[in-house]
């Protein structure tokens, strides 16, 4: 028996003892990375890191300070590159913009030299595979209705990256993952919506089988960009305003008012596009009973999101009978959780 076989046997025994399903789920988001794994208590553990970087001049003093402050960094091309949430916080302190390796849900053509840093973060949050070739399902966006994009390069790049880490990588549609995470009670029949940083993804599924999926290239970043434009501040600052715990039903300042306006506009835009796509009738299933709509994604975390969503939904004549409209209780991590479900069941 080889060392590899021994490792596999130990893992299998461990799985039997703890009933922990193998497999990992990875949400590769424009704003955040999240990796989900089943833990021994029957729950899941999700590791989250912001998908952002900040270059600062490299010197011994800065490096020591970052180490003392437990701020993650990488030395790359002679520069100190602060990674993740810390980069976002530092950018706000210094009034700078973070570097964003992804844009509109896909790898940004302007940030190809950020690949080593992304690989580091993904490796950190995923950890080692528990068996050689352990399943890792990662999310990819669907083709967009409103921009001409191509997910082939994006998907292939992350597939290769994850495979190189020793996993067996599989892609799954982002909104389909929301259905796996949130619509178990409806036998995985309904509409999953993922409001991410770069995109809003939609998927309609019947008994776990995706019938139709697509995206629109607007998300949290679109709100940030517009808020930053009207307020005359960096986007990182706009992101901070958006994420500091506001309620879009009750804005308290001019800044919050701006966020509220663009949130409502985003929700309306997404719903209008979904309606138009559903009405076009191609590949559309017909439902005898109302289906649920599950919303997830970091952009849906803002206070009052689901109430505003319901208000905007009531304004349109939706072509499908709809039952519950709800936001995931774990909106930020629902996609990673759905990927984990797919990985554990070996969905392909």
């Amino acid at each position: 028996m080889t060392q590899h076989d021994n490792h596999g046997a130990r893992s299998a025994q461990k799985q039997a003892d703890t009933d922990v399903a193998l497999g990992k789920g990875l949400d590769i988001g424009t704003a955040n990375f999240a990796a989900a794994v089943q833990n021994e208590d029957g729950g899941i553990t999700v590791t989250v890191e912001r998908n952002a970087f900040l270059d600062i001049p490299s010197d011994v003093y800065s490096k020591n300070m970052l180490t003392k402050l437990k701020v993650p960094y990488v030395v790359h091309n002679g520069k100190l590159v602060v990674i993740g949430e810390a980069a976002f916080e530092l950018a706000n302190v210094f009034g700078r913009e973070t570097r964003r390796p992804m844009c509109d849900g896909l790898i940004s053509p302007n940030e190809v030299d950020a690949l080593p840093m992304m690989k580091l973060i993904i490796s950190k949050i995923l950890g080692e595979p528990r068996t050689a070739g352990e399943n890792c399902y990662f999310c990819v966006p669907a083709p967009s209705l409103d921009v001409d994009n191509n997910v082939v390069y994006h998907q292939g790049l992350f597939e290769s990256m994850i495979n190189k880490m020793g996993f067996n990588a599989h892609a799954i549609n982002e909104a389909h993952a929301v259905i796996f995470a949130e619509l178990a009670e409806s036998d995985f029949t309904g509409i999953g919506l993922s409001f991410g940083g770069g995109m809003a993804n939609a998927c309609i599924a019947y008994k776990s089988i995706p019938c139709l999926s697509f995206s629109v290239a607007r998300g949290g970043d679109w709100i940030d960009k517009n808020v930053a434009n009207v307020l005359g501040c960096p986007r990182s600052k706009a992101t901070y305003i958006k994420e500091r715990g506001i309620d879009i039903r009750d804005p308290k300042s001019r800044e919050e008012e701006a966020v509220t306006i663009y949130y409502r506009s985003l929700i309306s835009y997404v719903l209008t596009n979904i309606k138009a796509r559903f009405e076009s009738g191609q590949n559309m299933p017909s439902f005898n009973t109302p289906v649920d709509i599950a919303c997830a994604g970091g952009t849906s975390l803002v206070g009052g999101f689901i109430e505003v969503f319901r208000e905007e939904f009531a304004k349109i004549d939706f072509p499908i009978p709809v039952g519950r409209i709800f936001r995931s209780e774990e909106a930020l991590t629902a996609v990673a959780k759905g990927c984990l479900v797919a990985a554990a069941i070996g969905e392909s």
Partner: peptide, 10 residues
Amino acid sequence: QVKQKAGGGI
């Protein structure tokens, strides 16, 4: 150490 969150089971 990266941030970890506990989530509902699957």
